[in-house]
Design a binder for these strands. Structure first.
Lengths: 253, 253
DNA sequence: ACAAAAGTGTTATGTGTACACCCATGA
DNA sequence: TCATGGGTGTACACATAACACTTTTGT
């Protein structure tokens, strides 16, 4: 019941000629990443979730959009491989990076079998500008991506679910923002990701009571009205839970 | 900060001769599984957490205890590979199986580099008897395992953390029990895993209010006192959340 | 002065926890 | 009838949610 049938992720899928070769070849191993950032909506201007995709320049799925990714090199760890590949393909260097899931279904890639270890990442608006060429790397609204190569659509859906889920119990919203932010900005992050309005008064209490967030003595000037105080994320309390484990995430049901 | 430096898991690590060969060889891919079951403590007789380990019969770490695991075959999905390998090495066929994490550190295995996709599983007491030979497969108390091969100690620690964490918000305790069980038995599962006593009264309300658990018209006879009612786990409500995602787990911090 | 967002107070409702108590059965 | 675990009731602490209200700024 809770078991699950994965699908197929590739990247650098060097097609192996025939069926017999496929039977014998060891499964390929690739690293891919789903990157999230908040950017203003084209219509409302309010912040919404976006993610960068790269256009495939070879078969299979040539011309279609796919997650950035590539093979795992011999001298890099899994997160190192994810970071390095992100920089190569999109020019992005996310501060937050976490393993999402390993996808290893039999027919994810048409030619050689590929197992993909997928990461997910959050980037701040400043670092979210794509230095790469506009042709083959482009931002898409996270809830509107479609026709992705391989099983990347399901991977994106899962990453989205994980982001929303984790947002509700962990302190990750800060990674979408710069060092200093107002509580209204932080609330907009939650509203954009969870896609529902939040009560400003209750949100304030909730977040100021939480650990790891400190008021600064600075205020955001230049607004139309009363300047709001700027806050900083100082991380969990210095002597917080010394986790012994790799990952840190909940799962439902 | 939330990024994490994995370690090393192998299985079937066919040592590749020299450093140069290691540099060039593609990373190996293995599947391992942490299996949990509840068995009576040797001392108190109360249920406690146990897990089966297999003794390594070749280098590296020859003679030491390790997680059951093996290579991924070309014609099986990841969970299929985990199940098949479990049956081969331990004779166990867990009903609950879920992906835990992918461990891919550079030096997990001394010779060839190995990336391990690790699953975790829960088995019921009936199916927890080891048909295999006693020599090379044995049950250990989960909180007392030590001197494991490779990075398997950290993997076990992480799986333990995940089990305890997930136990607090998901309906997985049932997988330790048979079809019919009393609320006291279910409570003992929670107490054993979380290692703290629970209020019977509040536990009863909590669990009977939850969906997916139904009282039967049967009672457990043969006890010393009033026979308790037997309950059944019917799974989440038939038309429950149609998850689109592979895995289902939360993470802290 | 007025509009609008920042920020505070108050109350209703729900949920977790501690614990007193009754119920049903075997011995 | 008595001991014991099964099972129910209840009161308190605390978190969440809804919303009225005051404060501070720019225009």
């Amino acid at each position: 019941m809770d078991q699950w049938q994965p699908l197929t992720v590739p990247v650098q899928a060097n097609p192996v000629g025939n069926v017999e070769e496929r039977r014998l070849a060891a499964p390929g191993l690739a690293i891919s990443t789903v990157i999230f950032a908040l950017k203003p909506s084209e219509t409302s201007g309010r912040p919404t979730l976006w993610l960068p995709l790269v256009r495939r320049i070879r078969e299979p799925f040539k011309g279609q959009w796919a997650l950035p990714g590539g093979p795992l090199r011999h001298d890099e760890s899994l997160p190192e491989a994810a970071s390095r590949n992100l920089l190569d393909t999109t020019g992005l260097a996310p501060r937050y990076l976490e393993q999402l899931y390993a996808f290893g279904g039999l027919h994810r890639s048409p030619a050689q079998r590929v197992v993909s270890i997928v990461y997910w990442a959050l980037v701040q608006p400043e670092e979210a500008e794509l230095p790469g060429e506009e042709e083959n790397v482009r931002w898409f609204r996270a809830d509107k991506v479609t026709d992705l190569a391989f099983d990347h659509q399901e991977i994106v859906d899962y990453a989205l679910w994980r982001l929303r889920n984790k947002m509700e119990y962990a302190s990750i919203a800060f990674h979408f923002l710069g060092e200093y932010f107002t509580l209204a900005q932080l609330r907009e992050v939650y509203e954009a990701v969870l896609d529902k309005p939040l009560d400003p008064a209750n949100f304030r209490r909730h977040v100021t009571n939480a650990v790891g967030i400190e008021p600064s003595d600075r205020y955001l000037q230049g607004g139309k009205h009363r300047p709001p105080r700027l806050y900083r994320y100082t991380g969990p309390a210095p002597s917080s839970t010394p986790r012994t484990a790799p990952n840190t995430a909940r799962n439902p049901s």
